[in-house]
Amino acid sequence: MLAGLVMVVFIVAMSVLAPFLGTQDPTFLGSQVDSPPSPRHPLGTDIGARDMLARVVWGGRFLLIVAALAVILCMAVGIPLGLLSAYRGGMVDRVVTLILDSIYAFPSLVFALIIVIVFGSSVFIYALAIAVVYVPSYFRVVRSQTLTVKELPYVDAAKSAGAGRLAIIRKYIWPNIIPSVVTVATINFADAILITAGLDFIGVGNLTRPDWGVDLYYGREAILSGAWWVIAFSGLMILVTTLGFSLISEGYAERTNPKLR
């Protein structure tokens, strides 16, 4: 978990501090196309002769913003929906569960691809696309945890002592669903990065943006002439980010659920 935290802090710090790190302009089209690492370009240049070091430093900003926004959107929709469904039961529960289960079963990248194609490739649309495919995950854990907890004797006791529904949710249900929500959120963060970079990789995003996924899109051509530096560093950055979040998720899950150890 510590290793994961270090990785995530490193990536976030680099992305936040990018304007102050004195790199070259990541979108500046130079003249030396696909040149290997050199003192002038420590990580080489890409097919547009852009400095790879600058692209690596700047390339995480879009991905991280999309992922963070997506996680917030997912929580804002998925958690209340899960609580509502578990509490109301009946028809509402069945319909909501059926619709969200359908989305859950579908390949997330394909769904996100269609949303981005229809509505455009802005930060908000990317986040929305990922939120749509990830809300079902939050919904499922919140719903199932709530269903379990709300039948427990101490909740019944609180009810008979006159506690209102909101008070029960806040005091008894909420603390029980937090661990699962945090675990889902960390995986969601990693997956959001993978989906966003994946969409960039197939070329549906804005290809002029400094973005690790876009670098890999250009890298498909570049590697045929052996230009490994175009893919290596940006790819590693994506990997470090997703690995960091996966490690945090794993560590947190083990800490809150000793059975997994």
């Binding site: 890298g219 790819g235 994506i238």
Partner: peptide, 14 residues
């Protein structure tokens, strides 16, 4: 964990 986190398109390029 490493395989699970590895972007499939990056592995393919490698």
């Amino acid at each position: 964990i490493l395989l699970y986190s590895w972007p499939v398109f990056f592995l393919g390029l490698i």
